[in-house]
């Protein structure tokens, strides 16, 4: 697998399937919006405001997932000095940052009709804000230490430190008494959300995941071309 990512094969794979992923993403997004805004029923407590869940929850899941991948790859990159992992992490970070921002802003919008406030320094919300800061610092480190030999080390340390925050976000609603509701969708135990709401949620998650994959491929492609431009300069 490592050789697949390190060779030109991956770049041509990206170029070949980029358009297909884009069309698939748009179709799933349209279907998800239709299901989420029209077909799915209102929540019996929160009414129509619960529809914000269809953009808030997938964004939060994906931003957490992306940072987990960045953190794990950074551990490998730090230990084994695999330069390609650094490029993969750098290409994943922009979509992670945007999904984190969407989760924070839509959560805040959802908070107003539900809790009566735009913002609360609650454990889940604060830990998500900390994750946003980690994403931001991680991305800024690439421009700040562009020419430094320690770029790999510095960015990896930031990502590994940020990785500690992931379980804190996940379990914050169980460890502390928070305004934020506990998880409704569980992998290991029974999900407390009705199927009519679960379906649009899963469709939207799939479409958001495809979007982040698309952005990752485009960014990774850009980074590889940048490397080739550097090589041409050296010739």
């Amino acid at each position: 697998m490592f050789t697949f990512f390190q060779s030109d094969k991956f770049l041509f794979f990206c170029l070949k399937y980029q358009k297909l992923i884009f069309y698939f993403f748009v179709s799933l997004l349209v279907l998800g919006l239709w299901e989420g805004l029209i077909v799915s029923p209102q929540d019996y407590v929160q009414g129509n405001s619960a529809r914000i869940m269809y953009v808030h929850v997938p964004s939060a899941w994906i931003s957490l997932g992306i940072f987990s991948v960045i953190g794990i790859l950074s551990i490998f990159s730090f230990i084994f000095k695999i330069k390609n992992f650094l490029i993969i992490c750098k290409s994943l970070a922009p979509s992670g940052l945007v999904f984190n921002l969407i989760a924070l802003v839509t959560g805040s919008i959802w908070g107003k009709p539900t809790w009566g406030t735009w913002w609360a320094w609650d454990a889940r919300i604060t830990s998500m804000l900390i994750l946003f800061l980690f994403y931001f610092i991680y991305l800024v480190s690439f421009s700040l230490f562009k020419k430094s030999k320690n770029l790999n080390k510095i960015s990896s340390i930031i990502a590994i430190l940020g990785l500690i925050n992931i379980p804190i976000i996940k379990f914050s609603v169980e460890w502390w008494s928070t305004l934020h509701q506990p998880s409704s969708v569980k992998i290991l135990s029974e999900t407390s959300i009705h199927n009519s709401m679960l379906l649009p949620l899963l469709i939207m998650t799939a479409s958001f995941a495809l979007f982040s994959l698309l952005i990752f491929l485009m960014k990774y492609n850009t980074e590889l071309i940048k490397l080739r431009n550097k090589r041409l300069d050296r010739l």
Binding site: G47, S49, I102, T106, K112, P113, F211
Partner: peptide, 20 residues
Amino acid sequence: NMDGHGIFVWSAFIFTIINF
């Protein structure tokens, strides 16, 4: 209007699409 919640729901969805 979504029973008065439309402003919140639409702004959340529009914000997401603009970011995309």
